[in-house]
Design a protein around this nucleic acid. Structure first.
Length: 975
RNA sequence: GGGCGAUUAACUCAGCGGGAGAGUGCUUCCCUUACAAGGAAGAAGUCACAGGUUCAAAUCCUGUAUCGCCCACCA
């Protein structure tokens, strides 16, 4: 048998990846005879490339799947990818840009074609990387959030929600990315603090709207703002009602500087008197808070910044709310013609100059303010009022809360339960529409004839494809715009023509509007007029909408088939906490709504992988450790083990190269100990395995240690604690098995007794097989390989083995037997300690004298003499009696009731030895006084549990005995 | 402002009511026939601080400090 001296992961991994794939080992089908264990993957984005977060997340799932497979479940892990909405669209847009193309000129259909082409070419990259990681996914079930089945699920869900009145179109302030031209939700923006300014601006005060304001600086109120450009859209100034400074102004009016529009001064609790000047300008259309204040006070919304973040050049008022300015005068900012179409920051600069020149600017102070940026392009977002589709959440969250309180899903660690509930309780309606092209197009169809009045369309006759109205404006020279109704009836365009050439926006549509049809497919005819001229809503759905359906859709929902019935609900969802709200909560809500059952019974939330300084890994920080590089450098099993080892429940983890080196060394250790056994197995008696053999205590000891490790590993994985499992196995394999048992076993292995040799090999084989089975979920490659060597006549995957249970290796072992082994270990350690401290060369042997207190114990220990000789490098082990004199010129030690002497004539420095022993005595004295304090404490003796009292007593007696022996050794040190 | 977590050896972190642990690093010695990606030995800690509960606290409770994360707000 040929095993290389060092484990080389590359060939082994390649071999087993091929093997697993060829045998379709991870494929699962419903099987009534077996219990299913199901996980659906958190689908990585198609643009994704495997990073540490993915590696950890999928590793944890893989551990569970392999473990459950080995414990007899029909385990099924469904892989797949997410189309990724805006993120993916941006990637392709950038590629197009390199070719000098824009999506607007390409048109919607062509662009989507390009997207699909791209996804076909590169979208599965991450799935291949997951295979490389060893993930035991059922690849036959690979899904994609935009494949046919999943689209069907999305449409079905939308139609159901829409028809039941859960979906409405409304106006909200949303974060708008002026670069990407779409609304963003909280997951798509990043907040950071940025240095900026707080400008104090004087607003003159008048008593009534009609009053002429002659001397503006006599009576004024100063507002503080970080965004002076939004003042064009101010419709009030607010102060706190209890603010003594401003009480006199409440109910009066302010004159908007430069614009000269008159706005009311109102009182609102939302104003913090301590911040800034205590007076706030209210810009309802461009600030979330102001919008809420405006609604409370019935203020008008004036839009002054457009979707490209430029100052608008037209009036755009929300006249549904009572305007306090008359329509004739407009929003006021129209007088500032020079600001039209200026970028927001440019406009800010101009405005500030003018305010300063005219004496309105009171002061400018430095101020750090939070900036919200688009996570894809880093552009500062603009809070804009826009029309979006919303999913009403109150009822859905209520059922989710109820379910969580009944513990229908259980969180691991449990500490996530509370934040989860809190989030659900404060849930706002979900903005589900996005103004991009890549995604699930909203399945709403508008009848041109019935709903034509409510649809604004832009027709672009030069273009074969329709284009969005807000994008590519420059190309609109020959376009016309208006309602569809107008196009049909006044312009006499044909429905077919409009369909081909128009892009549309819709007003406040709901299911109550005539001619609006939610349908999985294009409806054949309008339920109202019977005609079949439809326009489809241009928006696409938030990418999380399809993710929310994932655990159902991967099994074919809405079709009610065998897969869905067998595998749903899934057993556990494994995810990082960063998407607990965005994704987990939404899956629960849709699952409960559509299936009346939670999508998963457990949620296993793991930490986030950080760098060695605790920073989140990100490309911009340059602190990314690429798992693929690690796999290449140290092997996939090492990567997996390192991650598992660090994955402490409830904690984020810091990883660095060190962790991987440790794991790599561990794989090598496993490899070599296997090699040691297999090498010896080669020339062993063929049928030794079936032969009865008599176990030595050492064998019993390692088997009982193994049983303990097995128990602990099982419990650890069952409780989602892979780190505990990894640490247990590491400790057992290295510190117990390799360091001691393997060394002990060499006595019999290299001895001449064939039977003895076979016995020990048999134990080795048993331990080794258990070890690799135990390790397999964490380290699949090396364990398969070793398993292959062990069973070379009978090849197969270790995955079909049963995961070890403690019972299977437990023998009836008296405690005394294993305690004896522990004692031998201590004695050998003490001998080694003396050798080392007395500078005995490793090659040099010594004579060892042992004095054991009682003869029974002496008899036992003498049975281990060969082990002491071998591991302590002793030439001989002799026993002396209580009455015998201490061997002369000896270094000595006390282990329990045993005294050890190593005669070192000519080598021993008595003062050094005396000092060594004195240190031991003083340590013992400390120990003894600690015990004594307890034993003399009446409270301790009365109240402590008896076992503890016994423990302390025993330790006290042992320490006293040792101390006496050491004291005696010092007295007799000359021999 | 609300919530969560952390503070243990030089570093990275386990442990979470009864003897202070691991890996790395450090010191000394060894290429001994499974493994130098290794072996043997060793030094190294008022377990952040202050109170409390308990016979007993690194561990439970309260408070303080520092750090980190999440949510909300930030004119």
């Amino acid at each position: 048998m040929e095993m290389e001296k060092a484990y080389s992961p590359k060939d082994v991994e390649e071999k087993w990846l091929k093997e697993w794939a060829e045998k379709r080992l991870f494929h699962s089908m419903p099987d009534k005879a077996k219990k299913p264990f199901t996980i659906v993957i958190p689908p990585p984005n198609v643009t994704g490339s495997l990073h540490m977060g993915h590696a950890l997340n999928n590793l944890l799932q893989d551990i569970l799947i392999r473990y459950k497979t080995m414990t007899g479940y029909n385990a099924c892990w469904v892989p797949g990818t997410d189309h990724g909405g805006i993120a993916t669209q941006n990637v392709v847009e950038k590629l197009l840009k390199k070719e000098g193309k824009r999506k607007e000129t390409l048109g919607r259909n062509k662009f989507i074609e390009t997207m699909w082409q791209w996804r076909k070419e590169t979208g599965d990259t991450i799935l291949y990387q997951l295979r490389k990681l060893g993930c035991s996914c059922d690849w036959d079930r690979t899904s994609f959030t935009m494949d046919e089945k999943r689209c069907g699920a999305v449409n079905a869900a939308f139609v159901e929600f829409f028809n039941k009145g859960y979906i409405y179109r409304g106006e909200r302030i949303v974060d708008w990315c002026p670069r990407c031209g779409t609304a963003l939700n909280e997951s798509e923006v990043e907040q950071e603090n940025e240095k900026g300014h707080l400008w104090h601006i004087k607003y003159p005060v008048v008593n009534c709207p009609e009053e002429d304001c002659k001397n503006i600086f006599e009576n004024y109120i100063t507002v503080a703002t970080t965004r002076p450009e939004t003042m064009l859209g101010d419709t009030a100034v607010a102060v706190n009602p209890s603010d003594e400074r401003y009480k006199k102004f409440i109910g009066k009016y302010a004159v908007l500087p430069l614009v000269n529009r008159i706005i009311p001064i109102i009182a609102d609790e939302m104003v913090d008197p301590k911040f800034g000047t205590g007076a706030v300008k209210i810009t309802p259309a461009h600030d979330r808070n102001d919008a809420e204040t405006a609604i409370r006070h019935n203020l008008v919304f004036i839009h002054v910044i457009d979707k490209e973040a430029k100052i608008t050049s037209h009036i755009s008022l929300d006249l549904k709310r009572q305007p306090i300015i008359d329509k004739e005068k407009g929003a006021g900012h129209l007088v500032l013609e020079h600001l039209w179409s200026k970028d927001r920051y440019e406009a800010r600069k101009i405005l500030l100059d003018e305010l300063k020149n005219k004496g309105f600017l009171e002061k400018e102070e430095n101020y750090t303010l939070p900036i919200t940026r688009c996570y894809r392009c880093d552009t500062a977002t603009e809070p804009l009022v826009s029309r979006q589709w919303f999913l009403k959440m109150s009822e859905l969250s209520a059922i989710a809360i109820e379910s969580a309180k009944k513990r229908e899903t259980v969180f691991f660690p449990e500490s996530w339960y509370k934040p989860y509930i809190l989030w659900l309780e404060n849930l706002k309606d979900w903005c589900i529409s996005r103004q991009i092209w890549w995604g699930h197009r909203i399945p709403l169809w508008y009848c041109m004839h019935c709903a034509g009045k409510d649809i604004q369309a832009v027709c672009c006759p030069d273009k074969k494809e329709s284009i969005a109205p807000d994008q590519g404006k420059d190309d609109f020279s020959s376009s016309c715009s208006g309602t569809v109704d107008w196009m049909l009836n006044t312009m006499h365009l044909t429905p077919e023509y409009i369909k081909q050439n128009a892009s549309i926006t819709v007003e406040n549509m709901s299911k109550d509007v005539k001619g609006v049809v939610a349908s999985r497919h294009e409806p054949s005819k309008c339920p109202h007029c019977g005609k079949s001229d439809f326009l489809r809503d241009p928006d696409v759905l938030d990418t999380w909408f399809s993710s929310a359906l994932w655990p159902m859709s991967v099994f074919g929902w809405p079709e009610n088939n065998g897969d869905l019935n067998y595998y749903y609900p899934t057993d556990v969802l494994v995810t990082g906490h960063e998407i607990l709200y965005l994704w987990v909560a939404r899956m629960v809500m849709t699952g409960l709504y559509f299936k009346k059952e939670v999508p998963f019974k457990n949620v296993y939330i793991h930490g986030i992988v950080r760098d060695s300084h605790g920073k989140k890994m990100s490309k911009s920080l340059g602190n990314v450790i690429d798992p693929l590089t690690i796999m290449d450098k140290y092997g996939t099993d090492a990567l997996r083990f390192a991650l598992a080892y660090q994955s402490i429940p409830g904690r984020d983890m810091q990883i660095s190269d060190e962790n991987f080196i440790m794991a790599r060394n561990f794989t090598n250790k496993i490899w070599n100990v296997s090699r040691f056994i297999l090498m010896n197995l080669d020339d062993s008696d063929k049928d030794f395995v079936s032969k009865e053999c008599e176990l030595e205590n050492i064998d019993k000891w390692i088997l009982s240690e193994l049983a303990a490790a097995i128990e602990s590993a099982n419990a650890a994985i069952d409780s989602y604690n892979p780190a505990e499992a990894a640490r247990t196995l590491y400790e057992f394999i290295w510190a117990k098995y390799c360091d001691w048992y393997v060394e002990f076993s060499k006595v019999r292995m290299y001895g001449s007794d064939r039977k003895q040799r076979n016995t020990v090999l048999k134990i080795h084989l048993e331990v080794l097989e258990n070890i690799i089975k135990l390790l397999h979920p964490i380290m699949p490659f090396i364990t398969e390989e070793i398993y292959g060597y062990i069973n070379k006549d009978n090849p197969g995957s270790i995955l079909s083995c049963e995961y070890p249970r403690a019972l299977s290796v437990k023998r009836n072992v008296p405690n005394q037997d294993t305690a004896d082994v522990e004692k031998i270990i201590d004695i050998i350690s003490a001998i080694r300690n003396i050798r080392s401290e007395m500078n005995i060369k490793p090659g040099e042997t010594v004579e060892v004298y042992l004095r054991i207190a009682d003869s029974c114990s002496e008899k036992t220990i003498s049975g281990y003499a060969e082990y002491i000789k071998m591991l302590g490098k002793a030439e001989s082990v002799k026993f002396i009696k209580e009455k015998d004199a201490n061997p002369a010129h000896s270094a000595s030690a006390v282990v329990g009731d045993a005294e050890i002497f190593i005669p070192l004539e000519g080598k021993i420095d008595f003062t050094a030895e005396k000092k060594r022993l004195e240190i031991k005595i003083s340590k013992l004295e400390q120990e003894i006084s600690g015990y004594l304090k307890k034993l003399e404490n009446k409270n301790f003796m009365d109240k402590a549990i008896p076992e503890e009292v016994q423990r302390v007593k025993a330790r006290y007696i042992e320490a006293c005995g040792k101390k006496t022996k050491y004291a005696n050794l010092i007295v007799n040190i000359g021999g």
